[in-house]
């Protein structure tokens, strides 16, 4: 049950849930993600309510470049898979593999962010700005909120990699890794909805 039984480098089976503190963190974080679902749900509702108010701005069917967005989607989905491998490595207590998978995860996250910044830049140059229309405002707010979550995740996981080097994999660091990985999956799930509701629905109607 407690930490001291495992100090000699033998981590318990699920180190993220080995202490009460760890269990609290995992549960609290799931509740937090519940709140995040509501947050994004509201952003989606606002977007769906306003998405036809294009005014003089470019229409989504002309604006969106699906191939690039599809590439971004695949990159983010792959990074989510990498984070699964990271947690598996953690459960097998393989530090090097864990750090490697985390590293790939954030590299892919950065690639996604790069594409998104490029995409936003292109849109702005085509006259699709924050203040163009209700469609553009709700688009940038929804997709931007998601992008900010990705950026925060990249910073967070980078910090955790540094902590792994310094502190090793312990019952203190394991819950942190685990939480950042569920967070990363959550971001990925949100993106699947954004890809469908914003981009695909924008293309067809």
């Amino acid at each position: 049950m407690s930490a001291h039984q495992h100090v000699e480098g033998h981590l318990p089976h699920e180190p993220e849930k080995a202490t009460l503190e760890g269990r609290n963190k995992v549960l609290g974080f799931w509740i937090f993600l519940g709140a995040e679902v509501v947050l994004f749900g509201t952003l989606f509702s606002a977007f769906i309510a306003l998405r036809h108010q294009v005014l003089d701005g470019p229409h989504p069917s002309h604006l969106f470049e699906l191939p690039m967005v599809f590439a971004a989607t695949m990159i983010l989905l792959t990074s989510s898979l990498m984070s699964v491998f990271a947690v598996q490595a953690m459960h097998r207590n393989k530090m090097k593999a864990l750090i490697g998978w985390l590293f790939v995860t954030i590299i892919l996250g950065l690639a996604f962010l790069g594409l998104e910044i490029y995409e936003f830049n292109t849109y702005v140059s085509e006259g699709h700005k924050m203040n163009t229309s209700a469609f553009s405002s709700s688009f940038y707010t929804l997709v931007g909120f998601h992008g900010a979550h990705v950026a925060f995740g990249v910073l967070w996981i980078s910090l955790l990699i540094a902590q792994l080097f310094k502190k090793g994999l312990t019952v203190v660091t394991a819950p942190k890794i685990y939480l950042s990985m569920i967070y990363w999956h959550f971001i990925d799930v949100v993106w699947v909805f954004i890809f469908t509701v914003v981009y695909l629905m924008g293309k067809v109607g």
Binding site: Q53, V54, M130, N131, T132, A134, S136, S138
Partner: peptide, 17 residues
């Protein structure tokens, strides 16, 4: 955002509701 960045969520003139 409407107030600080001229977004149009609730600005009827900009398509808001």
């Amino acid at each position: 955002f409407d107030r600080l960045f001229q977004a149009n969520f609730f600005e009827v003139g900009g398509g808001g509701n």
